[in-house]
Amino acid sequence: MDFFALTALEREAVTLSLWVAGWAVAVSLPVGILTAWALARGHFPGKTLLEALVHLPLVLPPVVIGYLLLVLLGRNGLIGGPLYEHLGITLAFTWKGAVLAAAVMAFPLLVRAVRLSLENVDPGLEAAARTLGAGPLRVFFTVTLPLMAPGILTGTLLAFARSLGEFGATITFVSNIRGQTQTLPLALYTLTQVPDGETGAMRLCILSVLIAMVALIISETLSRKVAARMKA
């Protein structure tokens, strides 16, 4: 067997993992920026509650989150029921559910990083943009958002990495179906449970490290570029 050729199972696990993590980040990024904005700049009743809710996945066991998702969004669930009946959308035991589980688990990390960068944006610059004729929305997209770029980048990487590694919530909510919901960590776990699985497990382990390294290097390069742009 060629050491460098991926087996069908590995290929499936890797593609599915990247697919799920990519979607999880894409879905949670706009929501995360909006939430970070509300938490950093907003004044509204229930702000503390929202803050606690956002951070819940960080402090709860992932299995609890997975179970909550199952109860709420399963086909017989509180939200999942109507979702299936009226829109024909099933989340539990599908890759979309894996995306949701990963997004929920990664959400606090994303919001924290984005919020930190937002708090570092000088409101004086936004005021200056207003006096130059830009309305609030234009100010956000031409001044605030570009100045938040480093934090958004960090948040995206953190969320992506967290999504790749998601295990507990995923296996509880969408189970471990090969080619459907069996992401890299799930495949690795499965291999550790069968006899003669050590080699396969080790290969997946090396693959995980490689993917993480590549993601880190890309993010580092990008943030260095962004930082350089703000200097001379």
């Binding site: 004086g124 610059l125 200056a128 006096t131 004729g133 309305g135 001044v143 703000m230």
Partner: peptide
């Protein structure tokens, strides 16, 4: 009138140029 509709130019003490 909001600032963007006033057509008033403002030079701030600390410049406030957009760093990006």
């Amino acid at each position: 009138l909001p600032p963007e509709k006033r057509r008033i130019g403002y030079v701030f003490q600390e410049g406030r140029l957009f760093p990006h």
